[in-house]
Design a protein around this nucleic acid. Structure first.
Lengths: 199, 199, 199, 199
DNA sequence: AAGTAAGCGAGACGGTACGTCATGTCTTGCG
DNA sequence: CGCAAGACATGACGTACCGTCTCGCTTACTT
């Protein structure tokens, strides 16, 4: 039995909440992050500033929640990676898709904003890891473990390390804009990883 | 030919320039980056705000210049990596040193500030690559090329890719605080890289 | 003819009404008027804000109603001034009492609040005159008329003017804090008035 | 020798100060006082809000300063009342002028605002008395003293009281809108006063 | 005694203005 | 003449109230 004293305003709450998160995503996607103001979010969402500050303590937290909500929508489906039995093919598929994703300008701005926030706020970083990264990593590790069982990957390999070798170069290239995120590049990361951790 | 009309104010200029950069480094090292204000820098440096804005167009640029100046001081010495002939040993030495560096809190804040700026400003990112990253990468590649000549590394390996596999995982761990930056970890990155790109 | 559909909730209505007016008086008496908020009144009265706005259109109106209610309680008794036959003695009694009243701090704040409102809102001023001032003035004029009949006051005197000469100096001194509201002062106002309007 | 360390920015200061005071007077004259916002004053004056808050702590203080400045402009000339030797004629002239002044709508709003402030802030009231009221009262008393010397006024009369009897009824009528401020009314106040305090 | 509907407390909401803070520009007089 | 000092216009911040709007719950009357 829930211990809720007051009346239930959940319908209004939910409506304004969604309006705020949608407005935030729209603004972050279309402008530089520092130019996104809480006032602009409120105006775009058709909401008073106080309604925002009642729920979130800072712009970081709003942006974070906005992105979090985005992925929570698609939770059920996306947590499993393809497993055709061919590890190399499966990984290349995923890595090419990831590389393409980073190339989308509005996605780019969203993720840069997110990275800026979590880089400068350890608490947000922890929440980010727990809610977004870990579920995804669990799915990836499941695929790798299946590959280990099939003898396509060193059975003793540290899967965290495998994932880092696979993804970190792509991430760093994107963050520092230090090179093209081509399909070829995605493929070579898979090749390198398999050479390093192959049986 | 220098302008010989007036007195030589270059000494004052240089003195105030150094004071500003030092004050910036001190402030960025001791506080969260967003809390560092131009006014605080001016006050700490004993300088008028206009003297800062006359030289740099934005806070990003000041911070960037402050860090740039830091590494320019040690340019001559640091551009060469050790080359004992033992690639694995040399790399482990360097990687362990790098991992330790990231653990220093004031260095941590400086580099996080820098990363935030270059992640959100492509022009700064380009300058950063040109002035700081490329000289360092050139030195690293020189060491790798020496290893290729010695037959310790695949002669066809893409050295940019080698460097990414070596450094990007460490960088990502630090940025996202997703794991310890231990000597053991530094060593395994070298091991992985050598397995992937060994002859 | 009353609407006979529903039950009569007048008891609840009356109770909350009184609670609101009492809370308003208490707050206005104990704090600066601008710091009295509708929210505070509602909280103090243990009442929802809507219950207030259902009855009154503005804070002014509430405060006004609160003071109005205060004097309506004592209506029956207070509308007659003493008439001992000695005009001077009677007026001095009343004027001294008035002067003392203004000295009471909580009364002071209430009346200042009221004056602020009616000074800036002509409609409220009209209502104030009709409901509070005129009954009182009627009583005062009755006493003066009795004095005229007794030959103690010029039979042609404009009684409105007499009352102004008698009361306005006291009121202005209080409003502008431009001098003490002593019994001596009250007495001299009576003396002046009688000299001006005596037979 | 003044103890002023920094450079003298008095020209800019004075320009913005005058702009603020003028804008304040304009706004208070054209709208209800509660609807005058600091933001509107700043906008109208072409000035930042901070420039206002750097000088004055509250809206009251600005409005007060604005009105104060208004009368300080005309200080030199206005401090003397006419003295033709005919007290009654001189006073009627002044009282009629005063009554007319109160009828001007923009003056009305300004003075109502001022009265609201000084009624609710004792410190402001004191400053108001010192800077505006007392010089004026001194001038009025000088005229009355001249009348005493000429035997047109009781030599023992308390001049403060005389002034109150003369002006307070007019002021109260205006504040409470309790009657017309006609020339006839102005005249009767003079008549009453002379009857009360005549020789 | 149970049913019913008006009124209520609670408090979230869209807004407006507040007073503060940092930015980047402009001005003045000192050194 | 260049600089420190700092005032300035601008614009976002986060807070406080405003007056409006639901939401169950309470209450007083009806059946």
């Amino acid at each position: 039995m829930p211990n809720e004293k007051g009346p239930d305003h959940s319908r209004r709450k939910e409506r304004s909440r969604q309006a705020i998160l949608a407005a935030t995503r729209a603004l972050v996607a279309e402008e530089a992050y520092e130019k996104v103001t809480v006032e602009a979010i409120a105006a775009r969402a058709g909401v008073g500033k106080q309604t925002i500050y009642r729920r979130w303590p800072s712009k970081s937290a709003i942006v974070f929640a906005a992105l979090l909500a985005l992925s929570e929508d698609t939770d059920g489906q996306s947590v499993a990676l393809p497993d055709t039995g061919d590890l190399e093919a499966d990984l290349k598929l995923v890595m090419r898709a990831t590389a393409e994703e980073f190339a989308d300008p509005s996605f780019d701005r969203l993720i840069r904003a997110l990275n800026t926030e979590i880089s400068n706020d350890a608490a947000l970083a922890a929440e980010y890891r727990e809610k977004l990264v870990q579920p995804l990593e669990a799915a990836k590790k499941a695929r790798l473990r299946s590959a280990q069982d099939a003898g396509q990957l060193d059975a003793d390999a540290d899967l965290d390390l495998v994932l880092e070798v696979l993804y970190a170069p792509l991430f760093q290239r994107w963050l520092h804009r230090s090179g093209p995120l081509s399909a070829t590049y995605a493929d070579s990361l898979v090749d390198v990883t398999l050479r390093a951790f192959g049986p």
